[in-house]
Structures are given as C-alpha cells and as structure tokens.
Design a protein around this nucleic acid. Sequence first.
DNA 1: CTCGCAAGTAAATCACAATTTACTTAGCAA
DNA 2: TTGCTAAGTAAATTGTGATTTACTTGCGAG
Lengths: 187, 187
Amino acid sequence: MSDGSDLRKRNAERTREAILAAAQDVFSTTPYGEASLKEITHRAGANPALVSRYFGSKEKLFEEALSGALDVGMLTSVPRDRFGEAIAELFTTPSQTRINPLPMLIFSAANKETQAIAVALLHKKIMQPLERWIGGADAAARAAEIMAVSTGFFTFQLILPLQPFQGRADEGVRQWLARSLQAIIDG
Amino acid sequence: MSDGSDLRKRNAERTREAILAAAQDVFSTTPYGEASLKEITHRAGANPALVSRYFGSKEKLFEEALSGALDVGMLTSVPRDRFGEAIAELFTTPSQTRINPLPMLIFSAANKETQAIAVALLHKKIMQPLERWIGGADAAARAAEIMAVSTGFFTFQLILPLQPFQGRADEGVRQWLARSLQAIIDG
DNA sequence: CTCGCAAGTAAATCACAATTTACTTAGCAA
DNA sequence: TTGCTAAGTAAATTGTGATTTACTTGCGAG
C-alpha cells in the first residue's frame, strides 16, 4: 500500500507531489513565461510529458501550485495588537525553507489566463478569510490595503530590487512596514 | 522639411513615433509576453518588420516606451503638504488620456530581460530624482516606500482587480492612500 | 512466472511570434 | 523625366516550449 515511506521507483503519487513541489519552487522565483516544464520536471526528476498526465496543462499546474502556496494563516495566526510588528518581522526575515506565494501572485500578471486563476484563488484563499478575520463594515477595503502594501513590498524586494528593501531591510523600512500594516488593522 | 505637420505618406520619423505611442498603449494594458509586435504595429498602421528597423528589437521598443512613460514630475510637482491627498486623487481618478507607467513596471516582471531594463530606468528616471526631492538621510527608503504603496495599489486596481480598488475607489480607500503617502513624506 | 497495466520516456508535432530577407514603391534631386 | 534611395511590405526563417503520440519498462496480482 502506498504509505508515505514507499520506496518504489515508480509511484504516481510521489511523482505528482515532486512535480508540484518543484513547480512551487520555480514559479515563485521565475516569471511564469520563463518557467519551463522542462526545468520544473527536471528538478523533480521527472519527465515533462507527465505534467500533462497529472495536471492537464502548465496553467493547471500553476493553479495548483499557487493554491497550495496561498495560506492566510500566515496573517491571521498573529495577534491583532502585534500584527504589524509580527508581519514586518516575517517579511524582512528571508527564509529559504518556506515558499513565498506573493511572487507567484506578481508573476501571475504575465498573462490573462494566469491573472484570472490568481484572482479567483486570491479571493477564495486569502481575501474572504482575511475579511472575516478583520471584521467590520470596511473589512474588504482593509484586506485589500494589506495586500497592496505586502505585494508592493515584495515587488521591490524580490522582483525589481530596490536597495532599501534588500535582504533584512533596514530598521526604518521595518518600522514603516509594521506601522503601515498595524494602522490598517487598527482602522 | 519634416516639421510636425508633414503630410507625406512615407515619413520615418512619424512612423517611428506612431509605433512608440502604440507600444506605450499596448504595453501598459497587456502583459509583455502577450503584447505582440503585430498588434502594436497594426495600431500604428505600420508593419512588424519596422520595429526591428527603428528600435532593434521588442525589448528595445519596450525600453523606450517605458522610458518615455516614466515621469517623476507626476509626483514631484505636488506641494509636499498636500502630497498624499493630491496623489491619492490622481491615482483614483481614471484617465483615458494619460498613460500610466506603473502597469508597465508590473508587467516588466514577466522576464529577466525586461526586469533588468525596468530596474535601470526606474532608478534613473524615478528613484534618483524622487530621493533628491524628498531629501534627508533616509530619502532612499522613503522613496522606495512610496513606490511600494503606489505599485501595490495599481496591481490590485488594474491587474488583479480587487473590488475596493476598482474605478474611483471608495472614500475610505482614498483616505488610506492619502494618509499612507503623506505619512511617508512627513517621515 | 508471466501477464497486464500503470508509470515513465523520447521524440514528433503544433503553435506562435520575433526577426530576417528579398522585394516593391514613394518621393526627392539632378 | 529619370533614377536613386529611404520607407515600407510580404513572406520565409528561426527558435522555443507546450502538448501529443507511440513506445518501453517496472511491478504486483493471480
């Protein structure tokens, strides 16, 4: 039976997961159009033809990769009165292990198909729960504001690098991030 | 001689400008990879082969289009004590006439080449003059913060549409934008 | 053991758009 | 008027990468 410690060479489930993991890796560091299935499957030790078999298409693979990476818990697991501080700390502490979904979101701008996929998933997996967590009449606006600040920050930290946002960023930038985000939560 | 009112059918200067204008139009509304030279030159009433002649390549055309669109005057022509208010008003007042360079910046994430082009132009045409206009020790950080907020806003207004940012946006969003930007200027 | 099928592969196909090439034509100059 | 050159065009070329196809092989059931 296929439990997690299965050592067979051929194992559809395992291969599928390996491709998905590689896709999250690649899609969060490489623009969608430049992320090739050859590269992704190579990293997974698999063959490009399997993407079609297991996911249907590159776009569907992207959808599943993004869906798996989007996790509102990142935000909502933090106490409200420390929100800004905690998120600013998280954003400015580079982590090799955890994959960051925001670059994938930014890269999804690369074509209309992936834009549509991203908008739908963003609503379902982030905006709706985030709005509920925030609560109140203008929760939707405040949730959108949090996304705007976060995405803007990562755009210029990871994709179009500006010096002040590089690496751990400086104290001033961290404080700005913390205060901006806290102000949105406090309303 | 070729003054601006020249009516000849064949006029290299005129054609070049027409292609450039069409490119700014298309590149600011269509992801780079989906913006075809066929579409751009069609709008300009010209032929795709002319891009190669007048600009060298699609990337060079993009560079010139972005360069022409990036204009820090948008920001620095505003009095400092009304900065937030004025920019928020500008950002939330949809204009068909003026082309918005920020989507082009966001779309430039689509590949490493255009990223590099965008970063270089962003520095030269926006960050440097903006930092000088802001002044002080942490001017670079504050300039980057302004870009982050602005780009984040347009990402979710124009590219991955979130309801609260659509159209003129609501009063709460405008106030948030105004206050966020003003706070960065005030330090 | 061996058969059948699921898993995996290599190579062909398809699609598409940028760029190049070889050609046509408008417009100016002598 | 005639030719020469710059401007413009149509079609061929190229390159790339996703997807499909036809094939091979591992592996477990019976």
